[in-house]
Design a protein around this nucleic acid. Sequence first.
RNA 1: GGAGAGGUGGCCGAGCGGUUUAAGGCAGCUGCCUGCUAAGCAGUUGUGGGGGCAACUCCACCCCGGGUUCAAAUCCCGGCCUCUCCGCCA
Length: 426
Amino acid sequence: MLDLKFIRENVPVVKESLNNRNTEVEIDKLLQLDKERRDLLAQVEELKHQRNVVSETIGKLKKAGKEAREELREMKAVAQKIKEFDAKVGQLNEKIREKSLLIPNIPHKTVPVGKSPRDNVEVRQWGQQPRFDFSPRSHWDLAGDLGIIDFPRASKLSGSHFALYRGWGARLERALISFMLDLHTQKHGYTEISPPFIVKRECMVGTGQLPKLEEDMYRCEEDDFFLIPTAEVPLTNMHREEILKSEDLPLYYCAYTPCFRREAGSYGKDTRGLVRIHQFDKVELVKFVPPQDSGEELEKLVRDAEEVLQALGLHYRVLSLCTADISFAAAKCYDIEVWAPGERRYLEVSSCSSFGDFQARRAQIRYRPPGGTKAEFVHTLNGSGVALPRAVVAILETYQQKDGSVIIPEPLRPYMGGTEKISKED
RNA sequence: GGAGAGGUGGCCGAGCGGUUUAAGGCAGCUGCCUGCUAAGCAGUUGUGGGGGCAACUCCACCCCGGGUUCAAAUCCCGGCCUCUCCGCCA
């Protein structure tokens, strides 16, 4: 959410920024409502002042044993007016909030301006595309033959776009989770959290998934709960409506959680395999930092995520997303895309964003800067570190052998009982 | 699921219709005093919003949302959360 006062005072900047995002937002309508609200507010506050003063007088008169007929009659009318005005202000507030919640964040000035994902800018690459002396197969072929992922039975349970890992596949999943969590907690200084996977509506509003993306979320109708689409939601909302101590910042959290996404509107895309499924595992990184540090913290966050892929020896590239492609709440975003030899394309395994104070304002997360000055919004950041299924795709396809077996990357072996290779006969 | 208790400022804790536009204490900050420390004295310390160049001023906020009243932390209704006991359960 943007600061209404900021919008009021920076109309051209706001309009241009939102224009660069290719989004239509009714800024003028919003400002008009804001004007109406402030006019009404001035009137109703004057009435309330009058009420406060006269009520006190009535109290004193009664105490002194005197009548206050005239005052009572007068205040009855005033009370009625206040009620009417308050109702109008309330309606305006609601309209303003509805509109405000649908306005996306303003892109940071370092974000490349663009019209489509083609305008994203490649920042760097690591490693190189592996070469094979045979034609590399897709992960669904490999995993099916090895018996480590069973898509037909997953469909039997839950329909298409679900995965069921079996044997070494399940073990690989668990190994990756442990490996990533250990890396981030032991080397990068994140505190591990194991949060609830079901959250209240306010949380989804706080991080910006709602109200805009409700149709993409799994919802428990009866309780108005939502299955988390990412651990970003519980981790960021942990500090909702809190004023943090300056000396506690920066806060670094990481968590493994499953993620649930309806992927509404993406039918026909990535119909096979692990690339797009409704439930997947992910290790997520979330930071709360003082505003002046968020730029630098984003760079560090991306490096933390990249290190996972480096350790696993997977070739990847980093993109700086352009204004047309960054997500609703993000001020700036880097995507990390890993190379999948069987698919012959790069797959997004991590999206690292800084949100400025956008989420903090929605979720009311503040801190008190040193020197005892007034509480200010923190800056929030998050990034995948990394998403599991696509990492599995990259591992299977990158480390496949001619005989259909797959070599396990070195750092994962301790988590897999020392196993170096997954073969059919296992 | 059933029965009860409770949610007040950074913290503790009173208030249960109008001398409270939240007492008192603790902690913090600022002065004063004491040759150090401790103690003492005085003042000050929340959040959001409106208006004003400004000193300032007004409005709202005692879990949240409604209601009663000239007036609500206080009374009534609904909700959320916490705790205790019972039932159920991994």
